[in-house]
């Protein structure tokens, strides 16, 4: 089976770690890269940048709204600011600033939200960001990216920096399996087909990509030919890949560590209805979670390979 041999899904580092490391390399290559932090540098991993480039690192205190607008000013004056905090705070507290000082005038700010989703675990719902993609995708002109592993995160940090315009980059707290070879090429707005299949397509971002690959193995064993597509760019969406999946497999399951009321699922549904309407199922959170272990929470709130497989079976059944 292709899925088994191709993806051994060895555990890698958290995407926030890949972000922090790549940021340091970017800092060495481009002196215009600056970083703003809101008292979470050791959690968002921008502390490595702070150590090497203290003169280009600005701690804003616990004041996310102010930080975002400072980023807007820095960008308007020619810098490439990365403003980082927990996703739950930077997007919510900074939203109006993102709207009026960043999105509306189309200013080149890179917003990084770490600790996304419910897999942060024990800290509980106040720190879990499950609305961030709804918010970020609501902002016209924003590019919204949620990488699946350390390899894609490293690439997208660079792509975000060289992209001219506002970007939201979503990172996770927990370690995630490595999906990609180091030489994989990425582009903003391009989905990546990881496994081809003809009965159903699993589309996902973030840690749900690895779960989808595992789900595909389960489904293949049952005789359901499963396509798996990683959609790291949620906006602009790769509508071509969506239309192709709809046309060729007739059923799409979207899996994401986010509220099903927003995020990738609704974007794909919108694209599908405009191109080739097909059966769809949605795997994600439907309400605020609670404290617990990351694994326990993903299980309880239905974001595992088993949940993806179950949704795929439902979708395939509905096709007939």
């Amino acid at each position: 089976m292709a899925a088994k041999t191709k993806f051994d899904l060895k555990m890698g580092s958290a995407t926030r770690e890949a972000f922090g490391k790549t940021l340091v390399q970017l800092g060495r290559e481009n002196k215009d890269v600056v970083v703003c932090d809101a008292d979470l540098s050791k959690s968002t991993m921008v502390h490595w940048f702070a150590q090497e480039f203290p003169g280009r690192f600005f701690t804003c205190g616990i004041a996310e709204a102010n930080m975002v607008a400072i980023g807007a000013g820095l960008a308007s004056a020619g810098k490439i600011p990365f403003v980082a905090s927990f996703s739950a705070f930077v997007l919510t507290k900074g939203f109006e600033q993102l709207r009026v000082t960043v999105a509306y005038p189309n200013v080149n700010v890179k917003v990084v939200g770490t600790h996304s989703g419910i897999s942060i675990g024990e800290d509980g719902p106040s720190q879990m960001s499950i609305e961030d993609l709804s918010l970020a995708t609501a902002l016209p002109g924003f590019t919204v990216i949620s990488p699946a592993d350390e390899v894609s995160m490293a690439a997208f940090v660079r792509l975000a920096a060289s992209h001219d315009g506002p970007v939201f980059l979503r990172a996770g707290r927990a370690k995630v399996p490595v999906v990609y070879n180091p030489d994989q090429q990425f582009a903003i707005g391009k989905a990546i087909e990881l496994i081809d299949g003809s009965d159903v397509t699993l589309m996902a971002h973030g840690l749900m990509v690895a779960e989808s690959l595992r789900a595909a193995e389960i489904l293949e064993a049952e005789g359901i030919s499963t396509r798996v597509v990683d959609v790291p760019t949620i906006k602009p969406l790769d509508t071509g890949a969506v239309a192709k999946a709809a046309r060729e497999t007739g059923a799409i399951v979207v899996g994401e560590e986010h509220l099903v009321d927003g995020g990738l699922g609704v974007k794909v549904a919108q694209a599908v209805t405009q191109s080739h309407p097909c059966v769809m199922e949605f795997v994600g959170v439907t309400t605020y979670a609670e404290s617990g272990t990351p694994e326990g929470l993903l299980q309880k709130y239905g974001m595992t390979a088993a949940n993806m497989a179950a949704a795929a079976r439902r979708a395939v059944a509905r096709k007939k």
């Binding site: 024990e122 800290d123 720190q127 404290s291 617990g292």
Partner: peptide
């Protein structure tokens, strides 16, 4: 901080 506990992380 355990799942189901009334003593949540926050």
């Amino acid at each position: 901080r355990k799942m189901g506990s009334i003593y949540q992380g926050h």
